[in-house]
């Protein structure tokens, strides 16, 4: 019995002490937005479309991000320039549906679509959360600096002929019988 009373009292006193001691401790919360938190580079926030090291659009409109998206909030249409390079005619993300899962980034074969640490996307009007390609496309390479899909893929585009991609031999002369 005595032990029980003793334990209870100790526990309550200790708890009270702990609580009151925090009156003099520095606060964990910060004065957002006056104080900005540190965001980790791999945080999954606002989605962007990046450019390759040559400054061209990385997105080739393959539709893999759209099909990976669990909430179906990405819609785009493929088009092609005169020299065969695929790019999106429009690229739309409905951020009011986006759950920032990052599946699109994982699905992207060209590192075009990337999630960034920016989370400040609140809007007063829901319609304003629909972003088009002009809003999404940035001027840099984002998180992945070196990759250029068209330097690897064997499709001819402007400035890169057949046989000029990585690991490619010059085009075959089909009239020749030589090995």
């Amino acid at each position: 019995m005595l032990t029980l009373i003793k334990d209870t009292l100790t526990s309550q006193v200790v708890t009270l002490w702990r609580v009151f001691s925090h009156l003099w401790v520095k606060a964990d919360t910060v004065e957002y937005p006056d104080v900005q938190p540190y965001m980790f580079p791999r945080w999954r926030g606002r989605i962007i479309l990046s450019r390759d090291p040559d400054g061209e659009e990385r997105c080739v409109a393959c539709n893999l991000c759209a099909v990976a998206c669990p909430v179906d909030c990405i819609a785009l249409q493929k088009t092609e320039d005169e020299e065969g390079r695929w790019y999106p005619e429009f690229f739309r993300i409905n951020f009011s549906r986006c759950i920032m899962c990052g599946f699109c980034e994982e699905a992207c074969p060209t590192n075009a679509i990337q999630l960034t640490p920016d989370f400040e996307m609140a809007e007063y009007k829901r319609q304003d959360m629909v972003w088009e390609k002009e809003d999404l496309l940035i001027d840099g390479t984002g998180k992945y600096h070196d990759y250029n899909f068209y330097r690897v893929a064997g499709k001819k585009i402007g400035g890169k002929d057949k046989g000029e991609a990585r690991n490619e031999a010059v085009p075959v002369n089909v009239r020749s019988l030589l090995p």
């Binding site: 099909v67 998206c69 990405i74 739309r92 319609q127």
Partner: peptide, 16 residues
Amino acid sequence: HRYSGRTAMTANVNVH
């Protein structure tokens, strides 16, 4: 079953 873009196709006209 893999149809994509359902919530974005017409979002430019109306997000609802």
